[in-house]
Amino acid sequence: MSLDFQMMREAMVESQLRTTGVDDMRVIRAMATVPREDFVPEERRRVAYAEMAVPLGEGRRMNLPMATGRMLAELGLRDDDHVLVIGAATGYSAAICARIAKSVVALEEDAGLAARARELLAGTDTIEVVEGPLDQGWSDGAPYDAILIDGMVETIPEAVTEQLADGGRLTAAVLENGVSRLFFGRREGGAFGAASFADSLASTLPGFEQPKAFTF
């Protein structure tokens, strides 16, 4: 039986985005258009739009649609923005950002996922896929008007926030006291501040572990 992915996208928009506070119509239109099923392994296509973090291989998972949607809506992308997507994986979130912003740098540290992202995004000349440690960001493309850390981290490194332009915005899911919370931050006058705006499950990104305190 063939699957109706367009119907699945519409159901995702209605049940996972509109009902959870995703009210930016640019984000909704982009997520209703970008074929999420193309960015997951063939054997996972039937669950591409499920309310879950879809396995991509190598221990990585695609972030939940609601988490990505909420973070992008809060980020408030504009058509002249230069954006960094950290944890780009196979490129799904970068493809969404590219439908709104002027240019996108998609950072991924797993070589296999980055290769797949380049393949899938080859026809979009406003996206550059780069490889490197996620927790270091991508200084070669800085400064950025907006940074999306598309997954859950334990800490937001200063190395990343320093790559924001003055007035630049950042969203991420942060593990706080055992709870995954969505955070919005802004860099102003050389300082960065952030606060949570929602609780949400999100897929874990590697390399952002909080240093463990020494105990006797």
Rank of each mutant, 00 (worst) to 15 (best):
M1Y: 14
D4S: 08
F5R: 02
M7A: 15
R9N: 00
R9K: 10
E10W: 02
A11R: 15
E14K: 15
Q16P: 00
Q16D: 00
D24E: 12
A32H: 06
V34D: 00
E37D: 07
E37W: 02
D38I: 07
F39R: 03
F39W: 02
P41V: 00
R44N: 06
R45T: 01
V47C: 05
E58M: 13
E58V: 10
M62K: 02
L64C: 00
L64S: 04
M66Q: 09
L75W: 12
G76L: 10
L77V: 09
D79W: 08
D81H: 11
L84V: 00
G87D: 08
I100P: 05
L107C: 05
E108T: 15
A117Y: 04
R118H: 04
E119V: 07
E119T: 13
E119H: 10
G123V: 07
D125W: 09
I127Q: 05
E131S: 13
G132Q: 04
G132D: 05
G137H: 04
G137D: 06
A142M: 07
P143D: 11
D145S: 14
I147F: 11
G151P: 07
P157S: 03
E158C: 01
E162G: 14
Q163P: 06
L164D: 08
A165S: 11
G167C: 06
G167A: 05
V174E: 03
G178Y: 07
S180Y: 00
S180A: 14
F183C: 09
F184G: 14
G185R: 10
G189E: 15
F192V: 14
A194N: 12
A195F: 09
A198K: 03
S200R: 06
S200T: 02
L201K: 13
G207T: 07
Q210N: 15
F216N: 11
F216M: 09
